[in-house]
Structure formats: structure tokens, C-alpha cells
Design a protein around this nucleic acid. Structure first.
Lengths: 368, 368
DNA sequence: CCTCATCATGGTAGCGCTACCACAAGATGC
DNA sequence: GCATCTTGTGGTAGCGCTACCATGATGAGG
């Protein structure tokens, strides 16, 4: 007995920070006059605890400012969850939001996060295989990886959990968090139309990403619903890169009559459009309205700042982490949950790159 | 004995993933025909292990593909290291590199990383206090926070470990990882001079960041060493933002004779300079050379891509994490190490925004 | 030759928590 | 009234690792 107490005290010394040692579940149990088990149950929100007891425990927790030791939890609780964020061709503005969301949630839930670039891997198959071998339970896939069905199948096939973040369409075989790309593009187009524009150009994103098509369709539908013709000359192909945006914008601005607004499928291409417009002596927004999509850093670091669609990337990634944790828990209990698809709300952010069509241009165009 | 084996088997079942359960230190010990302790020593690189034994252990580790259980490690090893990345006004391109570096290292060393924004905090003092209270051991501070001596003092005063990443100058009281801002700016200026330019404009960064002054000094020194006068009209004040870069660039381009090159203190301002130049019907680089600093995402997402100075942000942040881990370990042993300052190499990245001065402009200028 | 450092290694006891089983007390069924 | 649940609670035994002490083996010094 004596020895035990002594060694415990010694142990304490190690874990100390400032004067007071961190309270343990045992301390709480003593305080609440119950067993550590009961405390554990309360902390973890399990049932079968009398309301009165629960209150006492919570009271004690509050009093001692107890917070459970993560390490002990995962040690005792079986397995440590490890999640990998896989990147193929990270756009850094997207990436940082992405990382922040994942990191916050991972910290909260004591999940180990790892970043993994696909770029230098011999093949995705071997990479995924190795990672699962190495103990990675879940994979979070941002675009464009999230659209790659072969990667998704690879992961689920190897027993991993894959969540696609921002795919163009949800795959049946795995979870996904996304926004309604179609509707967002529709709304943006509608918004531009409401500003008074009729000749609205559109720059398509990388054709390999499913979302690109969705955005295009949203644009088309909004135009058609407003009774506006979508001439082929109003639509230019881009690749989501700045460079491709320049080429596309040049093409669109060479059309006569010029569009009075251009909606680019992402902010980089919108920024490029602004640059091209400026070179053509067109002021943004007084001569031409330019809108983007994604609300990346680019959107508000250039001038004029871009009207764009904001995706809650951070929240979406956090959700993806949560989903993996939940699925892993369920799987460990033997169940096999179906893939969950969560749709997030987007937001149309109005900034200074938009305006009604200028009168001069307006006049050039005869009807209305 | 029998019971032990049995219960151990049961335990195994939990942690299983596919057929094989993760090997434990005991498995390795058995394989290497030594005690778990010896394995532990080898794994952790402690001394006092015979070379022969060490080899055996490493062999066994390789054979079983053993990797230590993080949770158990931190549980047994006393304290879990928690490091916070504090942001004040994150530029996302910087941020993502930052996060990646930190995350990679944190994963490797089983350190818990947390991101913390200062933006909504009532005061930095209370925030830092709360975090240390909450068990944060180390703080990593990117610019502009790393220049804020009061924050640094706050952290060290409260017993935390602060590492500044990319400060203008190293503070004596805490660790820092940085590049030689002065020399980098000197080199870039020298590089532009070598291209044949003589009227080289400079856009200063945010005056509150110490690095801004360093970069300016580097520019000045290189100009003077080359026998070129630095007229006040060649230097414009910026704030590191795109917007401020536009204003500064407009000012510089209004000077007669126009500079044939502009060196902006960061990429955002350089990008703005490119935009302004284009609006003034100047081609980059044939009419004017524009160089940036930092090599953020901006530098190669615009067109033309910017010649700039690359800081190894990722490596720097990783180093910062390592430094905190090391200091924490040392502190736990009672020693108090002096602050370490590590200088990283930068790199001048040549891209397509640079060229020799055009002949037309060259002629306008008489000498040479 | 014996003591006393020094080295290489092993044994033991937890770190703080949860899974699992046990058990008492009340509720329900026949 | 006894078997059978259900519910709330406690006890125990580890999770995989490392700190600490103990041990045996070696070499140095007297």
C-alpha cells in the first residue's frame, strides 16, 4: 500500500505541468463518490447512468476542470484512428482551408492526420496499399482525386474508408461531402442576369473534373430559364488554371458583341479574366463584370475583389474527418454502414467585380 | 501464465486490422531474443546497447514491420507534447506550406498540433495564458506574429516555448528559424542588375514587419555596391497586400524615366505590379521586369510567372516543431537550453517575368 | 583478490483509460 | 414464489510502452 502511494506520487511528478497535476478519472470518481467506470460512462455519453449520478459526475468534472487523457483513451479504447489527406495537385489556397478544417477536427477527436502527396508515387494503387498496410484507416480526397473512381474503389477494396470532398457527383460506394455545384452555378448566373446582363460569357473548368460539367449545366440552365440564348461563342474551355483562364478570356473578349459579364468556373480563371480585361482597356466592373467560383484566397487578394461562390471547405473537411471516425467506430462493432452523402450550403459572396452592364455597351445592344 | 496468454489474445482481437495484428514491442523482443526494454532503447536511440544487439533488434523491427504505438508511448512517456500554430492574418498560400511542414513533422514525432487564430481573441495575453493553461507546450509563430516581441515574451514568461518562423531578426529570448532576408534581397537585386537593369524600382513591405526593412536594406546595398543611385522616387511603400502593391506600382510607373525593373517585397505586390504594368500597356518582361519574394502560390499561378525568392517554409516549420520537441525534452530533464537560431538557405527562382531591359527603353537612357 | 565504477540488459510497475464481466436491486413473467 | 430480465454500478485486467531499479558481467584501481 505504502509503496503504491509512493510510486504514484513519483509518477505524478512526470506528468506535472505547473503546480497541479492533471486530474485523472480516478480523481473525478473520488470527488463524485462513484467508480471510475461510471465517470467514464458519463464522459462518453453512454446510457444506463442515473440522472442524479450523471449530474454529480459532471459537477465533479467541472470542479476539477478534468479533461480526459487522449493517449490513455486511445490506448485503452483499442485502435488509434489515422486518416490521410491525399493530394494530387494541391492548389494551395484550397489546401490551407482544407488542412485547417481537418486539423481542427482531428485535434478535437484525437485523430492522427497525415498528409500524403500522390505526385511522386509510382502508382496510386501501390500507394494506397502501402498506406492501408501501414495502418491508415481513412482517406480524405479533395478534387481532383475525389472524382477518380479507381482511387475510391482501390481504397474501399482494400478495406479503407474513403470520403470525397467536393466531388462533382457522389459515388455510391463511398461517403462524400459536397455542395450543389449545379445550383450554385445556376444562382450565380441568375445573380448576374439580375444585375441586368444578357451576354454572359462562361469559362468551363478542367473537363476531367466532374464538377466542371455541373457548373456549366447550372450556367446553361439559368441562361435558358431567363430566355437568354447560350451561343457557343459565349462559352470557352479552361483548365482551372490562371493561364487557361487568360486564353479563354481572350477568346471571349474577341467576340463581337463582347459579353458584358464573364463567369469563370473558378477564381484563378476569373482573376486571369480580370487581367485580360484590363489589358483590353476594359474596367472591371464598370465595363465588364467578372465572377469566380470557390472563394479561394485569390478572390480577395486581387483587385477588384471577386464576386464568387464560397464553399465551406473547412467545415466540409471537418465533416469528412467526423464521418470517417464514425464509420470506423461502426465497422469495429461489426456493422457496415452505407455511404453517407452530405450536402453543404454554399454562399454567393458579392464583392467589387460586379456591376450592371455599362450604358455604352448597353446601347450597342438593341433589345431592352 | 495460461490466463495471461489467453487474455492477451482477446486483447489482440480488438486492435486487429485485416488478419495480422499490429506487432508490439514484445513481439519484437521475442523475435530479437532480448527484453522489451532493450528494444525500447534501440528504438529510441538511447545509448548503452551493444552494437550486435542493436542490429538484431533492428532486424526484427524490419522483419515484423513494427512501428511503435503512439498512444502507448505518450501514455507511458509522461507527457504528450502539444504545439499550437498561431495565426494572426494568415495569407493562405503561406499558410498551406506552413501547415504541411508542421503536420508532417508532427505526424512523424507524434505531436499534437493545433491551429489557433488570434483574430477573434480579446487579447493575445489571455489567449496565450489560456492555451498554456490548457496544456499547450509550444507555440509556432509565423509572420507577422513572430515579430511581436510582446507575444514572444508572453509565451516564454508563462513557461511556454516559442519559436519564430521567418522573423526579421532573431530575438534573444526564443528560438527562431529564418532566412537571411537582407542577403536574399541583395541577391535578387544583384540578379536584376546583372540582367542589365539600372533603374530598378523597389516596393517596400509592411513597415510593421521587421523583414520589410531587411529586404529594403538588401536592395539598397546591392544598388549602391553596383554604383547605382537609389533615388527616393524608385522606392515606394507597400503593405504586402495586392492592393497596396497596385498603388505603389502606379507610383513607380509614373516616374520619368520609368524604371525598367521593379522588385516587390512579396509576390502579391509583384503580381499587382504586373497587373498595373499591363494596364499601362507595358509587357512583362519585355518592357519591364518584375520580381517578387516568397515564392507563394501567387508567383506561379499568374502569368507571366514570377521570378522570386523561395523560402523553404515547409522545412522551416518542420524544424520549428523539432526544436520545440527538443527543448521540451531538455526542459523536462531540468536543463534550460538557450534559444537556438537556425538560418535556412533561400533560393532565387528564375521564371518568365524577367528579361534584360528593352532596347527602346535602354536608348532613352544615355549612359552605357 | 576484492572493491567500486561502468556497461548491457532484464524485471516490474505503472501511465489513464476502457472493455468485459460481475453483481445487487428492482421489474416482469409464468 | 422463483426464474428471468433490465438497470445502475463496481471490480479487474489489461492496452503498449517507458521510468526506474536490480542484476550480472566486465574492467579499473588499490
Amino acid at each position: 500500500m505504502d509503496t503504491t502511494t509512493q510510486s504514484r506520487k513519483q509518477g505524478r511528478k512526470r506528468g506535472s505541468r505547473r503546480g497541479n497535476a492533471a486530474p485523472t478519472i480516478a480523481d473525478v470518481a473520488r470527488e463524485a463518490r462513484c467508480s471510475p467506470m461510471t465517470v467514464s460512462r458519463v464522459i462518453n455519453g453512454e446510457g444506463n447512468v442515473r440522472e442524479e449520478t450523471r449530474e454529480q459526475v459532471l459537477e465533479a468534472v467541472r470542479k476539477l476542470n478534468y479533461s480526459p487523457n487522449r493517449a490513455a483513451r486511445s490506448l485503452a479504447g483499442g485502435e488509434q484512428l489515422r486518416i490521410a489527406l491525399m493530394f494530387d495537385n494541391p492548389s494551395s489556397s484550397y489546401l490551407s482551408e482544407f488542412l485547417m478544417g481537418a486539423l481542427e477536427e482531428a485535434t478535437r477527436s484525437d485523430i492522427h492526420l497525415e498528409v500524403q502527396s500522390c505526385e511522386n508515387a509510382p502508382s496510386n494503387a501501390t500507394l494506397v496499399g502501402k498506406m492501408i498496410e501501414g495502418g491508415i484507416t481513412g482517406f480524405i480526397l479533395p478534387p481532383p482525386l475525389c472524382d477518380d473512381q479507381s482511387v475510391l474503389d482501390l481504397i474501399t477494396g482494400a478495406g479503407g474508408i474513403a470520403i470525397a470532398v467536393g466531388p462533382g457527383k457522389a459515388s455510391g460506394s463511398n461517403g462524400a461531402v459536397m455542395i450543389d455545384e449545379y445550383q450554385a452555378a445556376y444562382d450565380m448566373t441568375r445573380h448576374i442576369i439580375n444585375l441586368g446582363h444578357e451576354r454572359i460569357g462562361f469559362i468551363i473548368g478542367n473537363p476531367e473534373q466532374v464538377a466542371s460539367g455541373r457548373r456549366l449545366n447550372g450556367y446553361r440552365a439559368a441562361m435558358e430559364d431567363a430566355g437568354l440564348k447560350v451561343s457557343d461563342r459565349l462559352v470557352a474551355q479552361g483548365q482551372f488554371t490562371y493561364r487557361s483562364g487568360m486564353v479563354a478570356a481572350e477568346k471571349l473578349l474577341a467576340v463581337d458583341p463582347q459579353p458584358t459579364a464573364i463567369f469563370a468556373s473558378n477564381d484563378d480563371m476569373a482573376a486571369a479574366t480580370v487581367a485580360v480585361a484590363h489589358r483590353c482597356h476594359l474596367d472591371v466592373p464598370s465595363d465588364i463584370t467578372v465572377c469566380g467560383f470557390d472563394d479561394t484566397d485569390m478572390a480577395n487578394s486581387i483587385w477588384p475583389e471577386l464576386t464568387t461562390i464560397r464553399q465551406p471547405i473547412r467545415e466540409m473537411t471537418a465533416k469528412a474527418v467526423k464521418m470517417i471516425a464514425k464509420i470506423a467506430r461502426t465497422q469495429r462493432q461489426g456493422d457496415k454502414p452505407g455511404p453517407e452523402h452530405v450536402m453543404f450550403p454554399y454562399e454567393l459572396i458579392r464583392r467589387s467585380s460586379e456591376a450592371g452592364p455599362s450604358l455604352a455597351k448597353f446601347d450597342r445592344h438593341t433589345d431592352t
